[in-house]
Structure formats: structure tokens, C-alpha cells
Write a protein that binds this DNA or RNA. Structure first.
Lengths: 338, 338
DNA sequence: CCAATACTTTAAACCGGTTTAAGTGATATC
DNA sequence: GATATCACTTAAACCGGTTTAAAGTATTGG
């Protein structure tokens, strides 16, 4: 249109157009442009057309930061997670789609190095609520940070007085595993536990309670969260144990590895169960009987809890415990005949 | 200090204190508070003390949105990733710590559902640069979005004219696998490829080239990214093939599962290699020979490329190809004697 | 033809910071 | 004693939007 465009537009990196630019170009006021772009019913059809055309021509894109600052509500939810954790990944995706359906944006915070810092950043970014996936920060510190922000804790039993909690029925899940093994005929069952942490405690207590109900002696081996912890736990394995209930799938896989290396056939000589029903458990080479948590339900419920607080004004905290489901695979079978 | 605090401060959810509140309480101007908090050398020691004390007493926390809007530079880097992907997780953590060391914040965008939307949000949030982990968006669309924002693409061979690229030497990695198999004595080697995508193509071509160099006939089986794709690829496996080079670890694990189910011993009757050296490959039950990419190096180099553009004013795009390393495990061995 | 009512549009305040030009004293210079 | 210098502070502009009260223009009715 205009003869000879400047040859190197790139040199002067044109500042991206602002709403004011659009307004000026369309010959209207800035406020009107804002109304048009936010789909308000005020502006006339003719103006709307014109403004939209100009905006498109200029390649206008709103500035989120400015909008967030100006808006009374940000409609933004903060989610903290460990980036590589597949469990967190599944939860995050489901949370995101549930949030979007309710008209909220989601921003992620990585809790790899410094969880406190990650949460603070989300709070300072005006998130209206926080969803914390498996937080490990001490409750006191956590409480100070989230103070006035509605918070839902997922998959962790942090005891925050004002926070909502959504988690699986850990004790019940372990009981399902124990019951399954007992039904197969096992009488000496050991739990490779998660060492420390609230969840580890819940599962360990669940194990002790479940075995007690069946009139069995509970054997608890100190384990941990990783494959290595699981493998190491077998150093002190009593001879008569015929089945192992792992704290989670990783622990259980460590146990499987160790058994494999020691030439102990599974489930021929030893049955093993995990917890999480992770993708790993499904592999043919691993094929681990595991307790499934309803990830998707957890995510959806967590978002619902947030909405209750944000939109219905709920203030008293709620805790939701979801039932688990045992997925039986090839790592469990009847005990070897004595 | 003050007698009887109001019994239910919670009822009127006190708005969080602003910088103005701090200024007023300390009897100074807002600007001065800003200077103190940002550690400028202007304010006197006495004032600094007083302002900091008031800020602490009021529990003041700056508003990131406001600061971002006002500051000329945001010192923020946007990273897109698939939340549950362990590869992306490792990269993201390393990127984050490298960025922090250079004084930048990192914000994450989840590319589960809508990659375009995720990237747009980051751009609109004033990220100064973008790091895209394994983007799958068509280059044209991508180019339009990132337009004026410096961008580094990791682990993907998107052909964006202005973007930097950091990736593993895919062809070289596959060649390492092939050479290893040839050294073991294999002569009929097949590649279960990644079907479509730039990376898949690079690896496929690398495979063809490597076998050709050794004077072998390349056999390529259409595979894909997942375990199922890998398993399905074996439907058309020629009888005389004794080794399989998988597109990635997941494909290879699918292959392993299928072989296991068919009663084909590995590596007795068939050798298998993967690509990524993922945690999965290390499991004793899987124990997969795999090509390792230097994740950490990739992350650090990507951040360095960003800094070059942001702080040294580089404008011409760079592509960095990193060497791979073959990790030999139990899934490869000499071919079965004919 | 003028007032009342309904639509559109504008101007200006505001969100909560950062930044800079202009002030204010106090001390140093001549 | 008048002026230049220096160390602190302040006031105000600005970032790029949203929102609301008020103004302008049409339309309608009596």
C-alpha cells in the first residue's frame, strides 16, 4: 500500500501495538475498544466490526499483565507440581480443563528446588486460589504463605487448618491389597513403607490395621519413595514372608528388581503389590498389581472445592477422601506351597 | 501490643497491604519504599531500616503483576512443556536453576491440550524469551505467535527461521546403536521408527545412513511414539531380523513387551535398543540399552542462547547439536547362531 | 417542537507498582 | 554571605489495560 516499506523493519523492533493504538487507528476511545474486545454488550454492531477489523489488522494482542492488574478478579488458579512427575502431570491436565470449563486460567509453579518460593510467586501473581499437588512444606510455613488465599491440598495430608484436602483413601487402598493377598492364601505379609511423611504414615497404619483385622502379625520394613529404597528394604526380609505390599509403585518396582536379581520368581515365590497404578505398573515386563487412585476425580473435585469457596462463599474447610480400586495383574498369586 | 485484637479479623478479609500502605505507615513516599525494597542505593540507612521494619510488620508482599507492568524489562522466561513428561521435567528444572542464576524468573505453560494457547499466554504475559520443549505446532503457526520474541526450541527440529535450536545428534545417536549391534555381530537390523515428525525423520535417515555405511540393507518398520505403536510394528517383522533399533524408549518397551508375550528371549533371540535413556530403561526388569541425550547440557545451553540474545544482542539464529552417548544394558547381545 | 428515555461513546479514575525530574535541606566552596 | 554541591525525598508520569460516571446523540412520545 504505502510505497517502499522500510527495508529492515526488524532493526527497530516495533513495539507491540497497545489498546491505545487500536483506539486511535479506529477513531474511538480506549475504553470502547476494551468493551468490544471483552465482548460487552455496550458497543454498537457497526463500531464493534470496525474495532475488531483494526485490531486484527494491527495484530493486536492484549497484555495479560495489564489486564490482571486492572481487573478486580483475576480468575486465575495457581497449581504447584513437580514438573516430571507423571501423577502430577495427569492431575494438572485435568485441573486445567476443569478450570477452563469454569472460566478460569491456570498458572503452574514448579516445586523442584524451592517449594516455598514457587507458592509465594503464585500468590504474588494474584492467583485467586491455590491447588498444591503433594506439598512437602511444613504446615506452619505453608500456612503463613497461603494465609488469605483459598487452598486445596491434593494427595498429601498436610494439616493446614483452613485448607481443603482431596486425597485417596490410603488406608482403604492398602487394605484392598492386603485383603487380596489374604484371599489368595497369604498369611505372612510385609509392608515396605514410605519411611516418613503423612501419607507414608497413613498407609503404614492402614496396613497394620488391615492385617490385625485378619488376625495376622504385621511386618513393616522401612522403605522409602524410590526404587532404590524398595530394593534396600529387602535386606531384612524375614524368611517366611510370602507377599510384599509396597508403599507405591516405585518402591514396588525396586522390590521386583531386587527379587529378579536374586532369582526369586514372582509371583511364584513372592507376591508384590504397588500403589498408584502408574503407567509403569501396566508394562508387560512389570505387570504389577497396584492400587489405583482416581486421579481424574481428584482433579475435578479439587476444582469444585475451589469454586465453592470462590463463588459460593464457603469458608469452613472440607476434606474429601476418595475410594481406591485394586487393579490385579501378574505380580500377585497364591503363595508357594510350604 | 495493642489491646484486644478484633476477634474475627477473618470476617473482613483485610485486603493485602500495598506499597502505599507501607509508605503511609512509615511516613515516607511510595517511591521511596519502592527504592528501598528493590535495594537501590538511594535511600539513607536510617530510612531503609524503618521502611523495612514497617514492611515486615505489615507483612507486605509486592504485587508481581503490578511490578511486571511497570518495569521496562520483566526478566521472565517462558517455558512450555507437557507436565507429566519426565524428559521435560528434567529439562525444566535445569532451565529454572540456570535462569535463576542469571537473575531471571521462569514461568511454565502446559502444552497438554492446546499448545498454541499455552504459548500465546506466555507471550501475553510479557515473557522476554520462550523455551519450547518438543513443540509440535506447525512452524507457520508457531512463527506467527512468537514473531518478535526470542525463541529456543529444544528437542525438536521445527524449522523456524528466526529461532535457535538445541537438540541431540539424533542421527549420530542412532548410528551409535547400529554400530554397537554390528559390533556384536548383527547383520539384519530393523528400525521401528517414530512414524511422522521431524525428529522421527532425522532418526530414520540416520538409521538408513548408518546401515548403508556398514553395507547392510536397512529395514524400517513404521512405529510411533508409544508402547502400543512399538508392539504393533512387529506384525510385519521379517524372519531374519536379529536386532531392533527403537525410535525411543517407549517404542522399545512396547517391542520388549510384545517379544515377551510371544516368548522370544531378549537378547537371546533378539536384541533391542531404545533412545532417551529414560528412568524406565534403567529398571532391572526392562534393562534397555539406550541412547542417552545430555538433558542437563541441553537445558544449560538453551538458557545461554537466550541470554546471548537478550543481553549480548545476538540476532542471527544458532543451532546446537549435542553428542549422544550409548548406554549398554542387558537388552542387547550377540545374535543367535544361525 | 420539547422533554423523556434509550443507546452509544467518552473521559477520567484506578489497579499497584517503577522511574525520573524536580525539590529540600544541609554541607562545602569561594 | 552567596552559591555550588551533595545526599535524600517527593511528586508525578507512566505501564496497558478495566470500569464507571457523565456526556452526547437518537429515538420516542405527548
Amino acid at each position: 500500500m504505502e510505497g517502499e516499506a522500510p527495508p529492515a523493519a526488524r532493526l527497530a523492533p516495533r513495539r507491540r501495538p497497545t489498546m491505545q493504538d487500536v483506539a486511535h487507528e479506529a477513531g474511538v476511545s480506549k475504553g470502547l475498544v476494551s468493551m468490544v474486545l471483552s465482548g460487552s454488550s455496550g458497543p454498537s454492531a457497526a463500531t464493534r466490526e470496525r474495532v475488531l477489523a483494526v485490531a486484527a489488522r494491527l495484530g493486536y494482542r492484549g497484555d495479560r499483565t495489564a489486564a490482571l492488574l486492572a481487573r478486580r478478579r483475576t480468575r486465575t488458579l495457581g497449581v504447584t507440581l513437580i514438573p516430571g512427575n507423571p501423577y502430577h502431570g495427569e492431575l494438572a491436565e485435568e485441573i486445567q480443563s476443569a478450570a477452563e470449563a469454569a472460566g478460569y486460567e491456570v498458572v503452574l509453579g514448579a516445586t523442584g528446588a524451592d517449594e516455598g518460593h514457587a507458592i509465594e510467586t503464585l500468590v504474588d501473581s494474584r492467583c485467586e486460589a491455590l491447588l498444591l499437588l503433594g506439598p512437602t512444606l511444613p504446615a506452619a510455613r505453608l500456612g503463613r504463605i497461603v494465609d488469605a488465599v483459598p487452598t486445596v491440598v491434593l494427595g498429601s495430608a498436610v494439616d493446614l487448618p483452613d485448607a481443603d484436602v482431596v486425597r485417596a483413601d490410603d488406608a482403604g487402598g492398602i487394605a484392598q491389597a492386603v485383603d487380596h493377598l489374604v484371599a489368595l492364601g497369604h498369611r505372612r505379609i510385609a509392608h515396605v513403607d514410605g519411611r516418613s511423611g503423612a501419607i507414608a504414615e497413613l498407609r503404614r497404619e492402614g496396613f497394620v490395621a488391615a492385617t490385625a483385622r485378619r488376625g495376622l502379625d504385621p511386618v513393616v520394613l522401612p522403605g522409602g519413595l524410590t526404587e532404590d529404597d524398595g530394593a534396600a528394604a529387602l535386606d531384612d526380609l524375614p524368611d517366611d514372608v510370602t507377599a510384599l505390599v509396597g508403599f507405591n509403585d516405585r518402591t514396588a518396582v525396586g522390590v521386583l528388581d531386587r527379587l529378579e536379581r536374586s532369582g526369586v520368581p514372582v509371583p511364584g515365590a513372592m507376591s508384590v503389590t504397588g500403589f498408584d497404578d502408574s503407567p509403569m505398573a501396566r508394562h508387560a515386563r512389570i505387570d504389577l498389581t497396584s492400587v489405583a487412585q482416581g486421579y481424574l476425580d481428584q482433579a475435578r473435585l479439587a476444582v469444585r472445592l475451589v469454586l465453592e469457596r470462590l463463588e459460593d462463599g464457603r469458608t469452613e474447610p472440607r476434606e474429601i477422601v476418595l475410594p481406591t480400586r485394586l487393579v490385579v495383574r501378574g505380580s500377585t498369586g497364591p503363595p508357594r506351597r510350604a
